[in-house]
């Protein structure tokens, strides 16, 4: 199934940031992702939805090669970032991940201070030379993470002492501190309460102006609220990809319709 034609039609105005061609992923003998083709546009929020185990998180982790850390995982096909194949032998995943940041399902602040959490990325990538520069990056990132006002007085308190929602925003701030071009979010709100979820969703909307955001979510409402583009995965296949409004109001595939109306999932 190739939904490229449809998506290309509606994306004439924006540039493609990430493009996947015939991507297959295997975990040992399990075929987890089957022939996925997708073009993710720049400066948009793209949501991956689908029932659990459909491969949406797996595909997300392919985009910054986090799957490399799993021994049995094998990826075929091409994923292009700005027209460069990220699975090319010459690509260093370390450099790639600086460009393609990631936020995880469970907030995972390091057992360090808030300041050090955010400064970690810039330090390892050598983005700043002086203490002042780092201070500046930390403040900027925490502001972008919409958490500056809450933590500015206790930057040296441990990051693990924050509430769940704060921790997740701290993790987002930590991810944007390395100046990525793409932000991958793997169910970033699944461990949060509704109020914290609303705050994070608002933040995601803000981030769209600077980054291409790809978000995996199990909540269709969340996808509808935050994304402009939606991809529906089912059993390792990309069933349908298009504007969020289209997918939710006028799905072209019967499986998408079944999922959206709650008959499968």
């Amino acid at each position: 199934m190739n939904n490229m034609l449809m998506s290309e039609k509606k994306l004439e105005t924006t540039q493609t940031k990430i493009s996947a061609k015939d991507v297959n992923v295997y975990y040992g003998d399990t075929h987890a992702i089957k022939d996925v083709n997708v073009e993710i546009p720049e400066k948009t929020v793209t949501a991956f939805i689908g029932p659990s185990g459909c491969g949406k998180s797996t595909f997300l982790r392919c985009i910054n090669r986090m799957n490399d850390t799993i021994d049995v995982c094998r990826v075929t096909g091409d994923i292009l970032l700005d027209a460069e194949d990220i699975y090319d032998k010459r690509v260093d995943p370390v450099q790639l991940r600086a460009k393609v940041g990631m936020v995880f399902q469970k907030p995972n602040p390091f057992p360090k201070s808030i300041y050090d959490n955010v400064a970690y990325g810039p330090r390892i990538h050598g983005l700043a030379k002086t203490k002042a520069e780092i201070d500046e990056i930390v403040e900027k990132s925490l502001r972008r993470g919409a958490i500056w006002d809450e933590v500015k007085d206790r930057l040296h308190a441990p990051g693990t002492g924050l509430s769940g929602g704060q921790q997740q925003r701290l993790c987002i701030a930590r991810a944007v501190a390395t100046e990525p071009e793409v932000l991958l979010m793997d169910e970033p709100c699944s461990a949060l309460d509704p109020i914290a979820t609303a705050q994070v969703e608002e933040l995601i909307d803000d981030l769209r102006s600077r980054y291409s955001v790809v978000i995996v979510t199990h909540s269709m409402q969340q996808a509808a609220r935050v994304s402009q583009k939606t991809a529906f995965f089912h059993l390792g296949n990309l069933v349908e990809f298009g504007d969020t409004s289209d997918i939710f109001t006028n799905p072209s595939d019967s499986r998408t319709e079944s999922y959206i109306t709650g008959r499968i999932g």
Partner: peptide, 26 residues
């Protein structure tokens, strides 16, 4: 927890940076 390693690797840290600056301190 693996999530701490993922967090660090996801930021573009190398394995040794992850180990020295995140895993061992933890």
């Amino acid at each position: 927890p693996q999530s701490l390693r993922d967090g660090s690797l996801g930021l573009g840290a190398t394995k040794s940076e992850t180990i020295r600056q995140v895993v061992v301190p933890a």
